[in-house]
Structure formats: structure tokens, C-alpha cells
Design a protein around this nucleic acid. Sequence first.
DNA 1: TAGCATACATACAGAATGTATGTAAAGAGG
DNA 2: CCTCTTTACATACATTCTGTATGTATGCTA
Lengths: 194, 194
Amino acid sequence: MSRSNSERTRMTRQALIEAARRLFVEKGYAETATPDIVAAAGVTRGALYHHFEDKRALFRAVAEQEAAAVSADIERQAMTARTARDALLFGARAYFDAMQVEGRTRLLLLDAPAVLGAAEAAGLDAREAESALRAGLGDYLRGTEAEALLTPLTGLLSAAFDRAALAIEAGEDRAAQEAAIALVIDGLGGEFRR
Amino acid sequence: MSRSNSERTRMTRQALIEAARRLFVEKGYAETATPDIVAAAGVTRGALYHHFEDKRALFRAVAEQEAAAVSADIERQAMTARTARDALLFGARAYFDAMQVEGRTRLLLLDAPAVLGAAEAAGLDAREAESALRAGLGDYLRGTEAEALLTPLTGLLSAAFDRAALAIEAGEDRAAQEAAIALVIDGLGGEFRR
DNA sequence: TAGCATACATACAGAATGTATGTAAAGAGG
DNA sequence: CCTCTTTACATACATTCTGTATGTATGCTA
């Protein structure tokens, strides 16, 4: 049973990433040992350190894949919003749906900032999720004075989304979180308030 | 040179907490080894494990002391606000001032959630800083429909403050962050808008 | 002042990380 | 098709860390 090298690499890397994801979610990054990861993946530590520089690099791969999956999940939700406001609210709900997948809050919101640092962790979202938020918020604020503060407002709103996702995961009422987000958004809208 | 036992304990614990704080800030919790901590504190690992159950407990003590210091710093700023809105804005600025002390963002916003868990990390602020925010926001929203969502809104605003503190630490323009916070608060105010 | 509890220091066991080295299979070149 | 090189690992090793167990001196209490 012989496979091409590139295929072997792909399989081994993915097995490691998936096994690591399971254990990182279950016990957290710090409490997960590489011997356990490789055992779960059915390889040896040699394979791990051949494909990844160190344990952090493996975590980075897990987090990157997870962030990409979040983006994909969000985009999958057909965005049939008539107004910019609805686009933001639907986007928020799509984000909460995506973040409810087991382990995502722990991986992306708790462990990633500590393991990868604030800057790199922010970069995970920045590629897709946060740039979409920025675009949506830009549409929403077009023509208002708030538009000048688009960048910091995007960050603040993104942080609020993250906190809401954590609160929902912690058992808080999702409808209340969404309503609170809606209030914040409506407040920023100025002219467009109902 | 003999000291009372309670005094010895107090000194040793504080020496450990201060040394640990320095190293945790410098290298992060995970990269800081207990042998380095005790060397910096001038004691042995026996003393550390006598006074603290484990490394996490030492970190908890550091984080608790830091959270208390943040609260104290905030309260120290004489709050001479005439309106509820000003109270919130002054509070935000006081929070940013407090969080600019070297290492506080790393300790409280990056490491604490990963080391202590989301719930316990949230509990650090909950005692003072966040309950003050809740009170201020309660005053501000009194009589508006938003008052019903006081609890989730407090969480969202708290998250926004944290993100702003991180952004300021990362070199973003502080005035812009404060202006963005002001916009969010004004938006929530409804009736009270200028 | 005799016994006990406290506050450590030292020694040890287990385990984890990263590296160095060895090997078999895949791929490239002539 | 045969050789050489590179890739993809497996194994063994060195270092270091955490938590615990044990020993000891000093403060404290009856």
C-alpha cells in the first residue's frame, strides 16, 4: 500500500490536526500532551515534529482551520438582507451559530490569544470574519459621522460579538444577547432608527 | 532576626506574588517556570508549594491582586460627573488609564481567561469594576427600553472596553478608541442624544 | 518547658518538550 | 532501470518542569 508523498503528508497532517483539535477542546492547550495527540492520531512524535515546528505551530494550524471553518459557515448562510442593518443582525446570528460548534469558543476566544498572542489571534478573524463585519458596518454607517470611526467601531463590535458568543455558550439567553447586540447596532445607526 | 509567623507568611507570599508578576508579564504564564520565580523571590520551591496549591493558584493570587489594583485605581479618580453619560465616559477613561499599567492587559485579558477559565476570569472583574459599570449603565439607561437588557449590555460594553484597552496597548490611537466608545454609549442613550 | 504546628528546604518521581540520529520509501536524473 | 537525493517518518536522548514526599528549625501554645 503505497501513496504519493504529498498524499501521505496531507493525511498525516490532517490526522494530527483533528486529533489535536479533539484534545485541545477537551482539556485545553496547556493540559494536552503531545504523546497523547500522536497516540490519538495513530502516529509518533517524530511525525508531529517533522510536520510542525513545535506544539504551538500545531495549535496554530488547528486554530487557522477553525477560523476558516467559521468563515465558511457564515458565508454558507445565504445573506438575504434588504437593509444594511439586517445584514449586520443576520451576520451576528450567523456568527453565533458558527461559534456554537463544540470547542470553537475555547479554541478561538480563550486559548488562541494566550497561546498565539493578541496580535496573531486577532489576525485569525481579521482575514474574513472581521473584514466582512467591517464592510457591513461601513455600509450601515455610510453618510453618518460615525463612519470616520469605522475601524475602532469594528473592533469594539467584534469584541461584543465574541463576548456574546461566550455568554451564549455559558448558558445565557441567546435572544437577550441578540437583542442587546441589536440595541448597540441601532444606536450606532443614528438616522436609521425605527 | 526573628519575625512572627504571620509576618513571615505575609512577606514570603508577597515576594512570590511580585516576582511571579514580573515574570508572568515578561514571558507569559506558560513560559515562566517556578524555579525562576522562586529564584527571583529569593526563596525555594518548598516555600511556593507551601503557600500555594500549585502554579495556577499563584497566578490566581497575582491576577486577583491586579484586578483589585485596577479597581482601586479607578476609584481613585474622583468621579465628578454631572450626568450619567459623563460618568460612563469618565469611567471608561479611568479604566483605560488603569489598564495601561505595564502587564495588566496581558495578565487580565490574555492569560487569565486561558489559565483560570472564562468563568473565573470574568469573576475577577465582576466584583468591582464590572459591577460599577453595571451601576453606571443602569443609571444611564433608566427609563429607556434598553434597561430591560441591562445585564447583557453590561457584558457587551465590558468586552468593548477590554478590546479598546488592548487596542490602545497595541498602539492604536487612544482618542479614536474613546470616541468610538462614546458613540456606542450615546447610541444606547436614546432620548439623551445631543 | 514540652509538645505541636508552621514555614520552610531538599530530594525524588514522573512526565513532557524539543532535538539528534537512524531508516525506509518516494522521487528525480541519467 | 539503476543510482542518488530528498522526504517522511520512528526511535532514542538530553533537558527541564511540575508536584510530592520527607526532613528540619523555629515560632507558638498549653
